[in-house]
Design a protein around this nucleic acid. Structure first.
Length: 343
DNA sequence: AAGACGGGGAT
DNA sequence: ATCCCAGTCTT
């Protein structure tokens, strides 16, 4: 476990001597610091710098920003990306002007209610400006803290962030603004995602991951596999006896499970008739649509009622009576469809 | 819980 | 050229 006081002292001493100079570190104007934190969301320091300077040059006070027109303000964000940030900021600043007499609230519960102020911005601004003891957990801090404590939890999980906030709580009792900034500065300059500079790290001897040689394996972050979506037409085909046509899958996914005949939604009815070697009457409009979400893909299914006269289907196809449905195993999505058709 | 939102930097 | 990036709001 990290020796709280020594760790914090080492970190803060390093921060005081090595912090990078930034325009928003030269001020304690809440409006400027708030602006900088909004600009810094998902955006690196060197990108922000010129935008920040131009912005406060043109809108030096809360009052002047509140009186500005939206298009004019947007102009000063052009090229910075994530434009809802500036719309929310503008709206929030107008609210501060009108509801708080132009004073940025010195109360996290109030400040957090403003448009565009989420958990991170709230913690950052409230700690830097008013020294409220709230840990600011951004991407840097998730990475830094996972390494310092050698925590193997997936940082994409909300629970991990909650745990980190609790673990960091003792460190922000005093000098919260500096501590938060120091953690982020460490993440931005030393404890970087790749090519870490452990050799220069001021808190190397407090770092559990360094001690175990696991720095490069942390943080653990499950990369979200881009789920592909497939569009299917599912045919609920009946015959003269009211039986339903089903087929058994011979595929990697859900192998052996039974299903209603389903086809790529792009396929024409002729392709399907060829596959089934039968003439199929398909209703024009789907009865309903449904989707089935797997961990790695999504099926969007349009369910069509259909009819055929052909009776002699061979494996993997087979006619079943409604009451015999439970004698075969169907995947969840197919059972859902069956139930919905017959409800 | 998952997707949308923008650019820049790293690989 | 492709992947990655982790704040907030929306669905």
């Amino acid at each position: 476990m990290i020796e709280k006081n020594e760790f914090k002292d080492d970190l803060l001493n390093w921060f005081h001597e090595n912090k990078r100079q930034m325009p928003w570190r030269e001020t304690n104007n809440p409006y400027y610091i708030w602006l900088s934190e909004v600009m810094l969301q998902q955006t690196q320091v060197n990108t922000v710098r010129p935008y920040y300077n131009a912005f406060i040059d043109r809108f030096p006070t809360i009052q002047e920003l509140s009186n500005a027109k939206e298009e004019d303000v947007l102009k000063y964000w052009e090229g910075l990306g994530y434009y809802s940030r500036v719309r929310n900021f503008h709206e929030a600043v107008k609210e501060v002007q009108n509801e708080y007499n132009g004073i940025v609230p010195d109360n996290p519960d109030e400040f957090k209610k403003l448009k565009g102020v989420g958990p991170y911005t709230n913690a950052a601004v409230m700690s830097i400006v008013y020294n409220h003891p709230i840990p600011a957990v951004d991407g840097n801090v998730l990475r830094v803290w996972s390494r310092l404590t050698c925590n193997q939890q997936d940082i994409a999980l909300p629970k991990t962030k909650k745990d980190f906030e609790e673990e960091l709580q003792p460190f922000v009792k005093t000098e919260s603004g500096d501590f938060n900034q120091a953690m982020m500065e460490l993440g931005a300059t030393i404890c970087t995602p790749k090519k870490t500079l452990c050799i220069m790290c001021p808190v190397q001897n407090h770092c559990l991951a360094f001690a175990k040689g696991q720095v490069s394996e942390l943080p653990v972050k499950k990369k979200k596999v881009k789920k592909k979506t497939i569009e299917y037409s599912v045919l609920y085909i009946t015959n003269n006896d009211g039986e339903i046509l089903v087929r058994q899958r011979d595929t990697k996914l859900l192998n052996g499970m039974w299903e209603f005949p389903m086809f790529d939604a792009e396929d024409s009815i002729h392709t399907i008739e060829e596959e089934l070697e039968a003439v199929i009457d398909v209703q024009q409009e789907p009865m309903f649509t449904t989707k089935h979400i797997f961990t790695h893909m999504t099926w969007n299914m349009k369910i069509y009622r259909a009819y055929t006269q052909k009776n002699n289907f061979e494996h993997p196809y087979k006619w079943i009576k409604k009451d015999d449905k439970d004698s075969l195993s169907f995947s969840t999505s197919m059972t859902k469809i069956f139930n919905k058709v017959n409800e």
